[in-house]
Amino acid sequence: MSDAMEMTDVSAAEAPVASNPVMMRASKVCVFYGEKQALFEVDLDVAANEVTALIGPSGCGKSTFLRCLNRMNDTIDGCRVTGRITLQDADIYDPKVDVVELRASVGMVFQKPNPFPKSIFENIAYGPRIHGLAKNKTDMEEIVVTSLQKAGLYEEVKDRLNEPGTGLSGGQQQRLCIARAIAVSPEVILMDEPCSALDPIATARVEELIDELRENYTIVIVTHSMQQAARVSQRTAFFHLGKLVEEGATDTIFTSPKDKRTQDYITGRFG
């Protein structure tokens, strides 16, 4: 075992305190797929109105952790989550929690854009309709327009709202998916490598959008791109072999990490 592997993980007590109020808190979170343990006692605070980036090599547990935050792991047979995760101090794994409502509060944008096979308008209207957020047609139109504006897409699609969402470019489809998440007024938006399928221009547009959205939303993003993490996030958490090695202010993590594994990953020695 290398010296780097022998180093102990940074404890929650040593980790810098988040600058904004805590929106979500994970305490001693473990995830098991059958007998295999994928996450080991992760402690992480997610601050309100900040972008928290989860980085680390493939298979390190960052996407598994992200899916814990809105209980997407519930959909995987044999997956078991232990520990505690709270959203504004309420335990999201409490048996009384309505998972549909939770996923409206903690929205998800996936790696590959996945618009519904419906019109652009209906892609946005779907969530508000099932959650009863619009009293009438005028309300619904306002929600759709506002969501598209917040996602920086309205001017590009305002004359095509009845055309299929699948007819948009890849970058536009991803912004449509972000608008769809916004439409149900979430508190948190989770993004699982939202730019990995996009070209550099579309990626830059989504990154600008992420920076704009954090004024109103709390964002947690999984990214393979350390440059992206450095550009869009205020805090960064580094995962390795299912453990949270270190977390803190993004500029600190990238310029003076405490743990050798973090430094080795950031400098390209592994990963």
Rank of each mutant, 00 (worst) to 15 (best):
A38W: 04
V157L: 15
V100G: 09
T146D: 15
D74Q: 02
M108I: 00
A125P: 07
I85T: 03
V109T: 05
G61M: 05
L133C: 06
V29H: 08
V22Q: 12
D9N: 14
C30N: 15
K243N: 07
Y33G: 13
S233V: 02
T262R: 13
V188Y: 14
H224S: 10
G165I: 02
A125V: 13
I266Q: 06
D74S: 01
E50M: 11
D211H: 14
I130H: 11
F110M: 08
A151I: 05
R67E: 02
C68T: 14
T82Q: 05
A134R: 12
G248M: 04
A151V: 12
A204G: 11
P257N: 08
L213E: 03
M1K: 09
C30L: 03
Q227N: 06
E156C: 11
I221R: 00
D77Y: 08
R269L: 10
E101D: 09
D91H: 07
V17Y: 13
E101S: 08
A229E: 03
V232S: 00
I210H: 08
K150H: 10
A249H: 10
M140P: 10
R269V: 02
N114V: 12
V106C: 03
L190F: 11
G56Y: 00
P57E: 06
E122Q: 14
E207V: 04
E101Q: 09
F270Y: 12
K135M: 14
D9K: 13
I143E: 14
M5F: 14
P113C: 03
Q111M: 02
V145N: 12
R80F: 12
F40R: 08
S225K: 07
A4Q: 15
E142P: 01
P57L: 02
E193D: 10
G152I: 02
A181G: 09
P57N: 09
A197C: 05
A15F: 07
V97Q: 06
V22C: 10
P200Q: 13
E141I: 00
E14K: 15
I219P: 08
V232D: 03
R180T: 14
K28W: 00
K62T: 01
I266N: 07
L198S: 12
V29M: 04
D199H: 13
E101P: 00
Q111P: 04
K243L: 05
V184A: 12
R205Y: 10
D91P: 06
V222E: 05
D199C: 01
G242H: 04
P194E: 08
T82E: 08
R180W: 15
A26W: 03
V220G: 00
R129Q: 05
L69Q: 01
M108H: 06
G83D: 07
I85R: 04
T203W: 03
I55H: 03
F270D: 11
S63Q: 00
F65G: 11
Q228S: 00
T82I: 00
T64L: 02
K258H: 10
S196L: 06
G34I: 00
A151T: 09
R160W: 15
P117I: 01
L102W: 06
F110V: 01
T203G: 10
R261K: 10
G242I: 01
I210K: 04
D77P: 09
D43G: 12
G171N: 13
V109P: 13
N123P: 09
V22M: 10
G248V: 04
E41P: 08
L213A: 11
K137M: 12
V42E: 09
P113F: 01
A53T: 09
D259A: 09
A18W: 02
V109R: 02
L66F: 05
V222R: 03
P128I: 02
